Amino acid sequence: MKKVLYLGLVMVLCFSMIGCSNSNAFKVGETEFSNEEVDKVKSILTATQSYTDADYLAQFKESKDNDDKIKQEVISYMIDNEVVYQQAQKDKIKVTDDEVNQKYSQIEKMLDTNQEYKKLLDDAGVDEDYLKETIKKDLAVQKYRENFEQDLKVTDKEVEKYYKEHKDEFKEESVEAYHILVSTLDDKNKTVDDSKKEELKSKAESLLKEIKNGGDFEKIAKENSDDKSSGKKGGYLGYFTKDSKNAQFTKEAFKLEKGQVSNVFETPFGYEIVKVTNKKTEQKSLEDSREEIVNRILADKYLDQVNSLREKSDVQRF
């Protein structure tokens, strides 16, 4: 889990806060972190997994058997973030209010178009003050990482060696698909209220029932899809990869086998129905993989640095 998180998939929402008064879980230097804070971060990660292509977060599903293991993973993640943040402070890395407000505005706009996700974060206690302080810490850690990586050189020899040793990891899967969108966004691009959403979900379920009863998918898409661009082509999207569209959408599409139609599922844009008509896997060349390989090597070197900082830090678990 830790390695993937450090690549930034849920970075903005996953730092802990200071100042709760209940029993403490761990301490980094003079900064203490409560069990309540650990639970909050765990809740954020759990909410976030539904909105990213993040199979590695599947372990965050509640289970009595693995709850303690999950908690220890979250604490380990929080400790690593904190030791980097404290080093950033020692290095006098500054984050301005303008930088924080700009990032907050971006996140606020995203949440405005996804009220369900916003509710999950509200339930986890992520209010404006929490989020802004989290952003401030996140940006400091981000700047520390950028400063660390800017002087690193990744050679052609390193890239070629990595590609040779991990060649099977550089295969690109794509699917050919059609979809029907029943939009839940109003004219101002904001999510409609709950009663209207229920009405729209019922419409999507009705369309799916029609398809399963033998209805022509393309004809139904032309007549009903709110994605007008693909709708006029019967919902045709062509071939696409996992990282080329919304993660919630591709997560569902890539579950399907050739010829299968999905159940109704929700994305920030509305209720979706997808039909996969073909799948293919292609080996990516070294040159096509070069940027990803460089990023992976830099990430590995950064993780080594994080581990080094952690070893030098005064960390106590309670």
Rank of each mutant, 00 (worst) to 15 (best):
K118M: 12
S63W: 01
Q305N: 09
M110A: 15
D112T: 03
E128K: 15
V192G: 02
K275N: 03
Y144E: 03
K153V: 15
L7E: 07
D186W: 10
Q102F: 09
L256H: 00
K90N: 11
V12S: 14
K219D: 03
L45I: 13
E205F: 00
Q115G: 06
N81P: 14
Y51A: 15
K92G: 03
T277A: 03
A88Y: 03
A58N: 13
E311M: 09
N114E: 12
V126L: 11
A47L: 02
V182A: 07
K119M: 01
N189V: 13
D123M: 04
Y163W: 05
E205C: 01
L120V: 03
E82L: 13
I44W: 00
K196D: 09
D123A: 11
F60T: 15
S105C: 08
K212G: 07
L7D: 07
E223F: 10
S225W: 08
K71E: 14
S43P: 01
N35V: 12
Y236R: 00
D226S: 12
S34A: 10
A253R: 00
A88W: 03
K228L: 04
T277Q: 02
K94R: 13
I70W: 07
V100Y: 02
K132L: 04
V126I: 11
T155E: 11
F217N: 07
K228S: 03
Y77H: 11
S16Q: 15
Y77V: 11
L5S: 11
R310M: 09
E172R: 05
D187E: 13
E257K: 14
A221P: 04
S285E: 10
K190V: 13
V175Y: 00
A247G: 01
E82P: 14
T184W: 01
S230W: 02
Y77M: 14
D80P: 09
T113A: 14
N66W: 12
K42L: 15
N213K: 11
I44H: 02
K143W: 05
V315Y: 04
E272Q: 10
K188M: 04
Q86E: 15
K301R: 10
V306Y: 04
E172T: 05
Q87K: 07
N147Q: 11
F15Q: 08
S76V: 05
E311P: 08
T241E: 02
K275W: 06
A299L: 15
Y85T: 13
